[in-house]
Design a binder for these strands. Structure first.
Lengths: 108, 108
DNA sequence: TCGTTATATCACTATATGGTAATATAATCA
DNA sequence: TGATTATATTACCATATAGTGATATAACGA
């Protein structure tokens, strides 16, 4: 199987956006629905500048939508695939953990 | 939905491994089956030191298996989930591209 | 218009990451 | 044992990325 360099680069970019813990935390925070920046800050405990910076990256990647409402800006998830990906990976990681646990038990 | 910090960190790590284009290229190269380092170098066109470095990361993440055979080391895919993830994301990206194309056509 | 609130951006620092040339290590054979 | 081949590792450099404090910008109301 050969994938063209352009597609690979886009894939890498997509995974890169998801490769940062605090960004994932922000996305989890938005899973229930739209929130403004202050709400995200409160819920995540992250700094304001930091949150804004991460939100910008997420918006540019079309993973979240940005919606001004008065002085507030609301962000909501635009790409639900990310949660599907997270679930698949979490399953994988828990299976992996289970296997290691078994190995420790059997002494292999 | 709240995910514990440990799980988030593991998720981020997993995506981080996949967030590098040359690493993805190496993984694509291994999709057909096990290859030794020289074969990977030839097929990808990457440098030997660079390939070794990336393979180390992939092995430590349990995404590939490492199998010495004489002076050669063969690597093969240990975690097929990565291709599932890639397909899901590629679909998403192509849908996204199609939508942009439509927007250009309709002038929205 | 000015003051307040919400948010984005900038500039800086520290750390991480990717690629490379050189070298070390491992395996094999004569 | 030494030479050869295959591969891993090291040290270095350049670039990328994350977090923060300060500041700029946007929106609103008095």
């Amino acid at each position: 199987m050969q994938m063209n360099p352009g597609a690979i680069a886009q894939l890498a970019d997509y995974f890169k956006v998801l490769s940062e813990g605090n960004r994932l935390q922000i996305l989890c925070c938005l899973k229930d629905g739209a929130k403004n920046v202050t709400e995200i800050i409160t819920e995540t405990g992250l700094g304001q500048a930091n949150v804004s910076k991460h939100l910008k990256i997420l918006a540019q990647a079309s993973i979240v939508n940005r919606q001004p409402v008065g002085v507030s800006i609301y962000y909501e998830i635009a790409d639900p695939l990310i949660f599907e990906l997270c679930e698949l990976v979490c399953e994988r990681l828990s299976v992996s953990l289970e296997q290691r646990s078994q190995q420790l038990k059997t002494g292999i």
